[in-house]
Nucleic acid binder design. Structure first.
Lengths: 240, 240
DNA sequence: AAGTGGTCTAGACCACGGC
DNA sequence: CCGTGGTCTAGACCACTTC
């Protein structure tokens, strides 16, 4: 057949994905030897450079360690530092049940500070979403999200109570979340927050103001989070 | 021999270094086109794959951006997020005067928690350094550092009052500081801390517990920092 | 000594961008 | 259209680790 429309996926990507799957599935465990460049080349019928490319990419991903003269080995499981995760994802990572309650979902017409965080004009219409988060049946965080109301007009209360906001943004809206810039400080609890989080007014809260950006560098979302200090520790790795 | 100049022939390394120098010297400015793969190959008399390797490495370093069909261009200057800096360095970056007062510098024989943070046995002898930090003539942080007393026996009070601890570690001890893992939370001020930081007991403090590691992955230093919440905001970038 | 990853060659075709 | 980066071949020699 002339002009065959084969799947146009690149050989090295396929090899890379296949080995990555074998590592993530547990078939290959940390420390195990991965096939050598020459083995990969032979088994997949590609040239050495291509086999090499696949293994080099796996190393860049951190899944694999290459030692000259010795071989390629499955890397010890990586601790993900400075990784941006939604609440549901963090809870899942700790095998905790996801419970959160939507306190409010409404349009606000004048929130100049929050609009500025999203690089929108001061009078922009914003969608404000306030949620109370629970872990182990105790409230531990109050999170308020602000969206550009024009872009996210059809977010519904029920979809938000059910699922992960990150999931909705990435799948229903097709957005690629890339990074977040956070400002972290501590602040005393006001009366309302204290009541919601079942603590005493004036007790310390960890406050995180987070602006979340897409891969295109556009501010998607501003989140003001207040966390009970006794239930929450942030982990950060900084580099010299 | 440490410090030997690595002038291995590796063609791609030389090309990479030469282009990197031209960028860092300002000869090539952000947005400028860098020579294409084919130009590099011809000018340096190497094959395309080798020229390509050099440019790909420059991209990995973040010095260069490659756009298919268009070319290779000098990348905009990188913003350093999550950068590990000592107090003196942070103050210098904000053009603020460095003032800090050594409250204590002493040997402690039994500090099992702090020893554990340094991966030392529970009864290890530690050097404890407590410093009160000022900005704009107001106290704003209380930092307590713990060292392995056997390694850092000759730290003196005067050298510490004068200079940056990071500078001393890197220059006097020849250590290469690589990264720090931090635990961040909020906590109410106890009586002594409140007095030192001129605040009310119970008011919120930002607490940062920081373990600083060398390039060899060895824990060098454990720092417990307490920061007046109203004077201190932490900036972090997280990636998806 | 055998096997590994690291570097390198001298080509090839493709997909994409800008003119 | 031409030039660009992205993928790929079928080899080669070297430096290194392991036995």
């Amino acid at each position: 057949m002339p002009g065959t429309k084969e799947e146009r996926s690149h050989a090295y990507k396929k090899i890379q994905a296949e080995i990555a799957d074998r590592i993530r599935s547990g078939e290959l465990r940390p420390g195990d030897a991965v096939e050598s460049e020459r083995e990969v080349a032979r088994r997949y019928g590609v040239s050495l450079m291509t086999a090499r490319h696949a293994l080099t990419e796996l190393e860049r991903e951190g899944l694999v360690e290459r030692r000259r003269g010795a071989g390629t080995f499955v890397a010890p499981p990586r601790i993900h530092f400075n990784k941006l995760m939604g609440y549901s994802e963090q809870m899942a990572a700790r095998s905790l049940a996801v419970v959160s309650h939507v306190l409010a979902l409404k349009l606000v017409g004048s929130a100049p500070e929050e609009a500025a965080r999203l690089s929108l004009p001061p009078n922009a219409r914003l969608l404000k979403l306030e949620r109370l988060r629970h872990a182990a049946n105790e409230p531990f965080a109050l999170e308020t999200c602000y969206f550009d109301a024009d872009r996210f007009h059809d977010l519904t209360r029920t979809s938000l109570e059910r699922g992960s906001l990150f999931f909705i943004l990435e799948h229903n809206y097709g957005l690629e979340i890339a990074h977040a810039d956070e400002e972290i400080d501590a602040t005393p609890a006001d009366a309302r927050t204290a009541r919601l989080l079942e603590m005493q007014p004036g007790e310390p809260l960890l406050r995180i103001r987070q602006t979340i950006y897409s891969a295109q560098g556009k501010a998607l979302l501003y989140v003001l989070g207040l966390y009970r200090a006794d239930r929450h520790t942030l982990h950060v790795r900084r580099f010299r």
